[in-house]
Structures are given as C-alpha cells and as structure tokens.
C-alpha cells in the first residue's frame, strides 16, 4: 500500500562535543504502509529514549531543521507535555502524529506538511508538526484543528503555532504564538 510521499526517519542524540548537525542521523526511508510499520516496530518507543534525543519524520528531501528551504518560511504546531505524560500519553500522541503524516490527514493542506519532531527532554517532552508556510493562515489553521482533534486534546487545551523565523531569534525557544487552536 504505497504512501503519497516517501518519508525519512531521523534520530538525534545530543552530544555537546559535536556540532548539532553531526548528531543528526538519517535512520531509514519508507514509502509503503507495510514499511512504515516494519520501521515502527523496529525502533525504540519514544518514551524509552534518553533525554536529549529526538525522532523526526520528514518528507523525503526535507531535512528536519529550520534552514531547509521547505521549512524556513514555515513553522510548527507545538504540543508541550508535562513530565508525567511521558509514561501515560507520549507514545500514543507520537504514533497518532505519525499516522496523520503518512495517511495524508489534512486533505489538500497535507502538501504543506513537512514533518514532525519529538523532543525527549527532562523538563518536559515536546511534539511538533512542521508546515512549510507560516503565512498561509487558512492552511495552518486547518492543519492545527484537524491535528488537535486527532490527538484527542480537550477543548480547553490550547496549542500554538510558531513561525520558525520567530523561534530562530529567541534563544530560549519561547517564540510567540502566531496562531492558536
């Protein structure tokens, strides 16, 4: 069962002695539903990774960094999790994110989706869905509403979208939300 796009899984493991990009490794690429599950079963659950590690699943040809030409005008829907959610919800939310990506869940706006990243961090894990054009309000909001629903987040939970250009200028990665849903 072929996927609309070929997807690349990346793994990041923090090593302060090396440059950021040298810690980023391409693991594998998948382009069928069957290959996706073979990959998913083969890798550690996100909740089992050590702090400082990331997974990223991006469309083939897009590197999981702001600087990529398909990302630099874009931004991300960010889901910040409390520490205790690592063991209760993290793996479920990440898998749901992956299924949104490979299943093309955002109708015609799926073409604006670049990928998703999960950050495993001691202070709280994060999952983000990256899109290519922060100025496309209609597309970004459509994706955000569908994504929030797919994650099963309650009405009172607010998630924000930040433009990468804003995040890049904030050393503490607390860029203001451009949109919220």
């Amino acid at each position: 069962h072929p996927l609309q796009d070929r997807w690349a899984l990346w793994f990041f493991k923090s090593d302060q002695s090396r440059a950021w990009k040298d810690n980023l490794h391409l693991v594998t690429k998948v382009n069928t539903v069957e290959d996706f599950w073979a990959m998913y079963r083969h890798i550690q659950l996100a909740s089992k990774l050590s702090s400082g590690c990331d997974y990223a699943l991006f469309k083939d040809g897009i590197e999981p960094m702001w600087e990529d030409s398909r990302n630099k005008r874009g931004g991300r829907w960010l889901v910040s999790l409390a520490k205790q959610q690592r063991h209760s919800e993290l793996d479920h939310l990440w898998l749901e994110t992956l299924l949104c990506l490979i299943g093309e869940s955002f109708e015609e706006h799926s073409r604006e989706v670049c990928g998703a990243v999960i950050n495993i961090r001691t202070k709280g894990d994060k999952i983000a869905l990256w899109t290519s054009e922060a100025e496309n309000q209609a597309g970004v909001l459509y994706i955000g509403r569908v994504y929030k629903k797919r994650l099963g987040l309650s009405m009172k939970t607010i998630i924000g979208y930040q433009a990468h250009a804003d995040s890049a200028t904030k050393s503490n990665s607390l860029a203001k939300n451009k949109f919220v849903v």
Binding site: H1, P2, L3, Q4, V33, E34, D35, F36, W37, A38, Y40, E96, L99, I102, G103, E104, S105, S110, R150
Partner: peptide, 20 residues
C-alpha cells in the same frame, strides 16, 4: 489519485508481517 489512509486502516496493518 491521492493516497489517503485513515487511522483505522493504517492500524490494521500494525501487526501484519511485512515483506521487505
């Protein structure tokens, strides 16, 4: 056409043996 798959369809493949 566009290859769109809903979550239930994708989940049905989770435990199927893959041939790769």
């Amino acid at each position: 056409g566009k290859k769109q798959y809903d979550r239930e369809f994708l989940l049905d493949f989770q435990f199927m043996p893959a041939c790769i």
